[in-house]
């Protein structure tokens, strides 16, 4: 169901709402319809959106999760530990190492 259609407000007509709320709902509805109609009327665009969807899924649900953990987030509990580790790396090989 179109969540912004008048049917979504069962038992209450849009005209019963205060002017300010009516304006907000009308604006949201206009924006929603703008995008919905736009997507509906696309031809080459549908293929592209499918491609974007697949790509984002592969990137965020597979690549990021399984192959790209944040090294410092995973291995250290807090920023102090992270800073200590980086300082240790930076001072490695010094006469005080």
């Amino acid at each position: 169901m179109d969540i912004l259609s008048p049917k979504a407000y069962s038992g209450q007509s849009l005209s019963d709402l205060p002017a300010k709320e009516r304006l907000v709902i009308k604006t949201i509805r206009t924006i929603y319809r703008f995008y919905a109609d736009g997507f509906r009327s696309m031809r080459v665009g549908r293929k592209l959106w499918l491609l974007i969807g697949i790509k984002l899924f592969v990137m965020f649900a597979l690549v990021k999760v399984f192959f790209f953990p944040d090294f410092l987030e995973e291995n250290f509990a807090n920023d102090d530990e992270r800073a200590e580790y980086i300082l240790q790396t930076m001072t490695q090989g010094s006469s005080h190492d």
């Binding site: 080459v44 665009g45 592209l48 959106w49 491609l51 974007i52 790509k55 984002l56 990137m59 690549v63 990021k64 192959f67 790209f68 953990p69 944040d70 090294f71 410092l72 987030e73 992270r82 800073a83 980086i86 790396t89």
Partner: peptide, 27 residues
């Protein structure tokens, strides 16, 4: 639009790499 749609988010992978491969640098 075709170029934009296919290229979108390809740059994000570099941000993944910063966190995993280049964590010293990122920090």
């Amino acid at each position: 639009a075709i170029n934009f749609a296919i290229g979108i988010a390809t740059g994000l992978i570099m941000e993944f790499e910063f966190g995993t491969n280049w964590s010293n640098y990122s920090w």
